[in-house]
Computed example of a mutant assay.
Amino acid sequence: MDVGIVGSTGYGGVELYRLLSNHPNVNECILYSSSLEGTSYAEQYPHLIGLSLENVKPIMIEEMQELDFVFLAVPSGVSKELAQKLIGKKAKIIDLSGDLRLKEPGEYEEWYKGESAPEQLLDKAVYGLTEINRETIREADLIANPGCFPTATLLGVAPLFQHHLVKPHSFIVDAKTGLSGAGRKATQSSHFSETQENLRIYKVHQHQHTPEIEQQLKIWDSGAGPITFSTHLIPMTRGIMVTMYAELTEAHTTEQLHSLYHNYYEGKPFIRLRPTGQFPSTKEVFGTNFCDLSIQSDPRTGRVTIVSVIDNLVKGAAGQAVQNMNVMTGADETTGLHHYPIYP
């Protein structure tokens, strides 16, 4: 297959390149950028010296239309314009931005502060949470790749919401992320002096991933409503830890819930359920497409605690996009993604 990466010079783009350039089913990986076209990719990313010989191309719609896959690793607000020009041609599209995730245009406009994609484009887009929507993804031509926080959150609570074991309005999400989630462009909030030895909460009650999580929860449980979702910036490069709390509808032991999760995720190779009483950390999934989960009930409060960790650039972005490509082509979904975590 010949694939293209639009937005190749960002962190999501270079992570896609790392995965796709080593993918056994990919013949050529073509790099596009609207700002750094004509430059050597290895000049932009010196860790690729001697490995990458590609130059970054300007965005070329007609050329991209004839590729097998195009990955849009561009900011929200940009990808919907590109997707409209590519849809209906040979190339299948996997969009890593937030432009196509929300099915209600008004929600996008409220949370992303911009004009929504046309409804006909939103209707075509399949939400690419691979473990949940595999059969629909298999037949899709356009994928809305989930956000990093929604991926960790939704995989963490899918069994509970689908089996109606928690009271939806009690659901609280406490999420923490590394600095690479903010992208490559330097800002004051990502400056070393501002982040080192510091922990900061941000976008309180305003994070754009909130409606994405709520949208999927309502599909699973029609009684689901607004959630409390808090995000924090941690002075590390990669990783997301989401700690979730909810009130159980009736008493369940940790062992019962662990068995539910084991059965639910059986046969899903990138979900690793930790043994009862063991909790994952972000370093244990570093550089991989794994989502590690742990669950424990508290009989004293009647609540359940779920911990979910992912690498935000892999399972939270590029890795899940490649996983979706594998499913769309009928390949084993682990193809090109079976990496051991980098540790320590």
Rank of each mutant, 00 (worst) to 15 (best):
G147F: 08
V242D: 13
G128E: 02
P211A: 03
M241D: 05
T130L: 10
E250N: 03
K85H: 07
Y264R: 08
Y32I: 01
K85C: 07
A140S: 15
Q215A: 08
G7P: 11
Y202P: 02
S190T: 15
H338M: 15
T153Y: 03
G10H: 12
E250G: 04
E255P: 05
G223V: 01
I310Y: 06
P235H: 04
R134Y: 11
G106N: 13
A186P: 12
S35M: 01
D2A: 02
G77R: 08
A117P: 01
L155S: 07
E212A: 01
V78S: 12
E194T: 14
H258I: 03
S170P: 02
E54K: 14
V285S: 00
I59T: 06
G98T: 01
T237E: 11
G88L: 03
A246H: 09
L273N: 04
E139C: 13
S79Q: 01
G319M: 07
E119P: 00
D174T: 09
I61K: 08
G223L: 10
L260V: 07
L233V: 06
L19C: 10
A125Y: 02
I137H: 05
G98L: 03
D332V: 10
S190K: 13
N25I: 00
H23W: 06
I271C: 08
E63P: 00
F161R: 08
I87V: 15
T151V: 13
T177G: 06
I240Q: 00
S8I: 12
Q84Y: 09
I59C: 03
G178I: 04
A175H: 03
T301Q: 06
E135I: 05
I87Q: 14
N27H: 09
T9W: 00
W111R: 11
A331I: 00
K315Q: 15
I219C: 06
P211Q: 06
G225A: 04
A317M: 08
S33F: 01
M60S: 14
S193W: 14
L142H: 09
S259R: 10
V309D: 04
G38Q: 05
M64W: 05
I49K: 14
L313T: 13
H47K: 06
G178W: 03
I240N: 01
S193K: 10
T288L: 07
Y32K: 02
I295K: 02
K80I: 07
H339D: 13
G336V: 08
